[in-house]
């Protein structure tokens, strides 16, 4: 069993899992019916991707491992998502900014992952890239609407980008498992995507009349399984049924 490959898959899929979970919390509470549907749709896409990744990871592990045991039965430290995606749904400005920063990164990642030597990962990336292109268009357009909309929306989204900026650097960190996978031509060297990420983000921010934050200090830990205080509550809800009623079919 290739443990590095499994950890690598978790590293990618957990971002979609946790962000999908956050977006799912918003269902029925959006600022308009159209945005409500769009955010739920993104959540659905992300969970769809998660299922492909976890089904693959389960197959690699065999025995009793399933997509659900991976999704619901790990300890907090075993989730390898970045801190950005677990940040709470404070308001629409935060939701869109979190989405935008993740989408730009996600699209760059998948563009490279479709060239992976691992055929399954390449295939998942190829399928997901169509969805993530749409997510990126949606969140970029909303960054512009909020940034260049009213004074109130401008201030709110500027606050969100200022607050969430410190979580961007972690997107480009590589774990030990990542490094092994990169050397084998399976994984993507995300550190090489950093420059292009900030360039693309800056372009949109400029068009949205927003300031790029001048912040030199960044947060990290998610990729090592060391999360924020928010994560425990998110998992408590997500894992509730599986923990309260173990070993059952649903």
């Amino acid at each position: 069993m290739n443990n590095n490959l499994i950890q690598y898959i978790y590293g990618i899929a957990d971002n979609s899992l946790i962000l999908g979970q956050r977006l799912g919390e918003l269902c029925g509470h959006g600022p308009s019916l159209e945005t409500d549907i769009a955010m739920t749709n993104i959540s659905l896409d992300l969970f769809g991707q998660v299922r492909s990744y976890f089904q693959y990871a389960a197959k690699l592990q065999g025995e009793d491992v399933t997509e659900d045991s991976i999704a619901f039965l790990r300890k907090e430290r075993e989730y390898k998502n970045v801190l950005l995606v677990e940040q709470p749904n404070k308001d629409f400005a935060y939701q869109i900014t979190r989405q935008f920063l993740f989408d730009i990164y996600h699209l760059l990642l998948l563009s490279e992952l479709q060239n992976s030597k691992d055929e399954t990962l390449a295939a998942i990336a190829k399928k997901s890239i169509k969805e993530v292109s749409y997510h990126t268009r949606f969140s970029s357009d909303w960054m512009k609407r909020l940034g260049d909309g009213t004074e109130e929306s401008h201030n709110k989204v500027q606050t969100a980008i200022n607050d969430l900026w410190e979580f961007t650097d972690e997107l480009f960190h590589t774990t030990d498992a990542d490094k092994v996978m990169i050397s084998e031509g399976i994984g993507v060297d995300v550190s090489l995507l950093k420059e292009l990420f900030y360039k693309k983000v800056n372009e949109i921010l400029e068009e949205a009349t927003l300031q790029t934050p001048d912040i030199k200090y960044f947060q990290k830990g998610g990729k090592q399984g060391i999360h924020s205080e928010h994560m425990g509550y998110l998992l408590a809800q997500m894992q509730y049924m599986q923990l309260a009623y173990p070993n059952m079919n649903w």
Binding site: Q21, G24, E25, C27, G28, L33, D36, I37, T40, N41, S43, L44, F47, G48, V50, R51, F54, E67, D68, A71, F72, Q237, M238, Y240, M241, Q242, Y245, M248, W250
Partner: peptide, 21 residues
């Protein structure tokens, strides 16, 4: 949605509510 017991059920529930929207 946040407490659905499996990924399959979660996705189906999300899709259903989206239909309602």
């Amino acid at each position: 949605i946040s407490r659905a017991p499996s990924l399959k059920r979660k996705v189906a529930l999300l899709a259903k509510i989206q239909d309602e929207a």
